[in-house]
Design a protein around this nucleic acid. Sequence first.
DNA 1: CGATGCAATGATATGTTGTAACTTGCGGCT
DNA 2: AGCCGCAAGTTACAACATATCATTGCATCG
Lengths: 154, 154
Amino acid sequence: MPQHDHQLHEGDSLRDAARDRLTRQGEQWTGMREAVFEALAGFDKPASAYDIAEAVSQSQERRVAANSVYRILDLFVGANLARRVESANAYVANAHPDCLHDCIFLICDSCGQAVHIDDDRLTGGVRDAAKDAGFTKARPVIEVRGTCGDCDES
Amino acid sequence: MPQHDHQLHEGDSLRDAARDRLTRQGEQWTGMREAVFEALAGFDKPASAYDIAEAVSQSQERRVAANSVYRILDLFVGANLARRVESANAYVANAHPDCLHDCIFLICDSCGQAVHIDDDRLTGGVRDAAKDAGFTKARPVIEVRGTCGDCDES
DNA sequence: CGATGCAATGATATGTTGTAACTTGCGGCT
DNA sequence: AGCCGCAAGTTACAACATATCATTGCATCG
């Protein structure tokens, strides 16, 4: 039971949505940014900045430095095109960049897959708890490390 | 309104509780472990392994290597004497090592202070969500980055 | 057109966090 | 004493992240 309508994107559509979103924020959509976004979206699990630098280096046939990737990833996170998975020091593309959500990641310790959940009741509860403690500008980080259904069978 | 009775420790009492807990798990309470624990408990905010290595080096008047500290911190986390704050790459002493809890940290981006909350309703909700998604052996990581009441006044 | 300014990116270096592999030291046991 | 096992030390390195300054490309203005 979805709690709201998501505009879910994939492939070209996702890239287009990302480009639109970024340009609407007054930022440029450059070749480098597109390459980083494509690389990030191409991973099926959270990717580190160095993973992405490696992937972009391949696709561009030249050496891309990690710090450029970090800059762009920070931009993406700020623009909601990507999320950082704190407990994995890694990043994932956001498949619906136009919805602003606190999100919950479930990360499998065995295969590294991450699944993404939205549950505004839970995240709202965490926000409320932070507010009660006097915290402002709260940014919840809610992740669960564990074993996914596929890996658990083994 | 506390949801249960905590045995809250500080100072010598905390060290004793930690020692008892560790020895009851069949582990040794060595001088090095005590020094690491004291250093960790002496910080008023989450401390990195390198912070602790530095502090122990001072108190021992000799150079202590970070990897030894890591080993001991891992042991402490496993024994519930300490917690890792994922979003800060840092550790805090657990003031009530005999209660097993999922806990919630609120970390101030400005001063680095962390406050610790227990809320079994919230953490239970997150565990349930993970279970519904087929995850097992769940270990929730729930943290909130933000600005604490003290820092917000400025 | 050339000068200027600015944003993006590159290059290089360094800092921080975390592990791995192997060795040494020390206490208990036979 | 000789052996065993765990703690801790040593060394090396891998992985993650940031700082600084140089360069490039592009738009604007005189």
